[in-house]
Design a protein around this nucleic acid. Sequence first.
DNA 1: TAAATAGTGTCTCTAAGACAATATAGA
DNA 2: TCTATATTGTCTTAGAGACACTATTTA
Lengths: 244, 244
Amino acid sequence: MNAAAPQGYDPHAFEPFAVTVDLAVFTVRESRLHVLLVERGEEPYKGHWALPGGFVLPRESAGTAARRELAEETGLTEDAVPSLHLEQLRTYSEPDRDPRMRVVSVAYAALVPDLPEPRGGGDAAGARWWDAGRLGPLAFDHDVILADARARIGAKLEYTCLATAFCPPEFTLGELQQVYETVWGVELDRPNFRRKVLATPGFVQAVEGPPRRTGGRGKPAALHRAGAATALHPPLLRPEGRST
Amino acid sequence: MNAAAPQGYDPHAFEPFAVTVDLAVFTVRESRLHVLLVERGEEPYKGHWALPGGFVLPRESAGTAARRELAEETGLTEDAVPSLHLEQLRTYSEPDRDPRMRVVSVAYAALVPDLPEPRGGGDAAGARWWDAGRLGPLAFDHDVILADARARIGAKLEYTCLATAFCPPEFTLGELQQVYETVWGVELDRPNFRRKVLATPGFVQAVEGPPRRTGGRGKPAALHRAGAATALHPPLLRPEGRST
DNA sequence: TAAATAGTGTCTCTAAGACAATATAGA
DNA sequence: TCTATATTGTCTTAGAGACACTATTTA
């Protein structure tokens, strides 16, 4: 953008680039990784499912557009959305990724706790959660975006405290472990997981009041909140470097 | 890009988005991290230094544009460029990041071995290497992009075999260690570094022929090539989690 | 009681950190 | 010789993996 424009370049003369955002919104539901998809009502890919997203408006950054879309698609209240984890993934710009026109899409990954089914605020009329392990082909290049998003999230669980973003404000260590096991597709040893989490300062903080909560019929578990730490040193490496 | 366009949206009616790439090209020179910058000859930021970059052409992907710019700016031959490490960093899209028009820029980081001063093939007339630790403010938001790029590269040295991308085809373990020390800004214990690198299958492979090379006046070191591995399991963590 | 989940303790082993000692070059 | 770099080896310690055992709930 600092180099001279190509000879004779005039931004208005070329077919312009459209810039959009696409969102891979993940949650953990019933021990399965789920992703929020919307059904396309128009060609191309009519009837296929796609990642939610939309145009970046003329005075918006891509990040702002992504947060706006996230609020619209999840139907969450204004004050709940800013606390959700949303991170830029990468940008997809193959010339023919959309047959209608030249569209460059900035992809984002969002992590949310288990939410009710979306009641579309905007375009999300046909939005629902899908088991990320049982998806047919998605519209456009969204299979690739989704795979990249899963890989990124799985990797970040190793060296960040991101897993708490999947949990409600108060959670048990068992629930936190479920997040790791679900995203990584492995089983972890409970005592060792517990030792690691508690040994990392700021990962979680115990909720002092002795209230406890049951997960079914065993012993109630102590509740925790997300701590202030964001990085995990040393990391919590997934067994054998499998990537699902 | 799947949601309906905003009411009355016509791609030609709005001020269009321009899409560019910006490159943070790094090398290690004389034990210092260097970055390739170009001097701006026009307003805005005339006389300031900036990351090399340019427009994404109508039939190009951003990745293709980045590789094209990398070839132009480094002045390398066609066959040398494809082997260089080039990775997408993230996209910068604040509405006012360029005062002239709406420009969305996809940033890339490139790692190259120590190269001669660039003799500009194209727009790179005023291109040169700068010590990344002694930079004045750059044009546009390029300080932010550069900082993000350094952080990413430093982090990736921990869990990938990327460091070899800074080295010539054959290198000594001391040179490889220099890469880590320079990028991280720390000193590492030589025997331990050596043990770790050699214990990671596929990180480096010894060059069998007993040719050796001197770095000054000590004992000559054995030569190695980059191996086939890309990931580092377990990672080579930087001491104390400092981020320079 | 049995079954299920939460939590504690312990042993082992890998690998990283510290650092001594040896090897081979140039000045 | 001395100095500088490369290379090998050893001791210690932090932390992960495996797993036995105890605690507290519901059925």
